[in-house]
Design a binder for these strands. Structure first.
Lengths: 184, 184
DNA sequence: TGGCTCATGTAATCTGTTACATGATTCT
DNA sequence: AGAATCATGTAACAGATTACATGAGCCA
């Protein structure tokens, strides 16, 4: 109880909106959160079971489309604990970019090999940006002043803006390192 | 040998420039890397010893200013392994922002409590930005086309640009959530 | 029938932090 | 004299990933 582990609260947060299976929780994270939070099944399922043990979530064995699933639902205690955590000050924001590490020591391998890292980074960002832009557009359209959309829009916008800033930096880096503009 | 652990290479990278003590390594990270990579003594010292075991680094007991220190120096094998790692493709870039998590679920606690998280985030960024700007300016001035400065400038510029993008997002977030512009 | 997605979970392992433990030197 | 910084390290623990293990339903 009163565990500090953040996975607890991420899952409680998702379940506070609707009941989900472990598999669906993973998918939500991968589509909505991925750029600022990720998790594997190896942490999701054990966390769900510990939440059940603590009475913060209930587990229901259901059959849907002839498929057996475990549906998890947040309890009143779970909702309460989630709110308590949400108001606590943030304890850690972390960026850990191996790409920057390799760029920092780029002098050891020279500009052309360093540029490869920058190109790869750029490709990943360009690949992920459209879904963020799509989310921003969709959430902007449904400007219903309603419930949670405003907050989803804020995080999606963060992703979009930061990814755009990354791409600007890539252009700058290519200029500095004398890379040609040929992508791909 | 052939360990994947990145701390190995971060330390080898720092030592490839000059011999350092564990304490100095920590300081370098805290001043130069902090925004994209961090580590505690609890991982630095054991890593250094394992690097010595593997013959990638040598350990020398010296006395300086009446103080006993362990000075670590990279070996030829260490330099070689570092270069080999630097050219390998990046395996992971990770951003894990608890702040965004709390903003995402902000609907549960409302705009004013969510704005507190945004204000705290903004304060931290504003606090760290000047040192990045200072680094960029200093590295821009010594435009000597020389050795590693170009690469240091690239990473510092990344930090500066991204932090500026964060601040722009904070302004947007405050507007969306109806926060007053009173900082501090 | 074969491959993909849906679906759940465990065990081993990895990587790192926090807290503890200690002590000298330098600054005020 | 006391606080801050310099300096090194360990032990316990936390938190998460990877690989493994398994199996059903859906689509081509």
């Amino acid at each position: 109880m009163a565990n500090e582990k953040k996975m607890n609260f991420v899952i409680l947060g998702l379940l506070s909106h609707e009941s989900l299976t472990g598999y669906e929780i993973k998918k939500r994270m991968d589509t909505t959160f991925k750029f600022f939070w990720s998790a594997s099944y190896g942490s999701i399922y054990p966390t769900l079971n510990s939440l059940v043990q603590d009475g913060l979530v209930t587990k229901l064995d259901i059959t849907e489309n002839g498929r057996d699933k475990m549906l998890y639902t947040i309890t009143a205690a779970g909702k309460e604990l989630l709110k308590q955590w949400l108001v606590l000050p943030v304890t850690k924001d972390e960026l850990r970019y191996e790409t920057l590490m390799k760029v920092f020591f780029g002098g050891k391998i020279g500009p052309s090999l360093t540029l490869e890292h920058i190109h790869n980074f750029e490709s990943k960002i360009k690949n992920d940006l459209p879904s963020l832009e799509g989310a921003v557009q969709k959430l902007t359209e449904i400007q219903d002043e309603e419930d949670d959309h405003k907050y989803f829009l804020l995080t999606a916008t963060f992703g979009k803006q930061i990814y755009e800033a990354y791409l600007e930096w890539c252009e700058y880096a290519k200029k500095i390192l004398g890379g040609t503009s040929s992508n791909q």
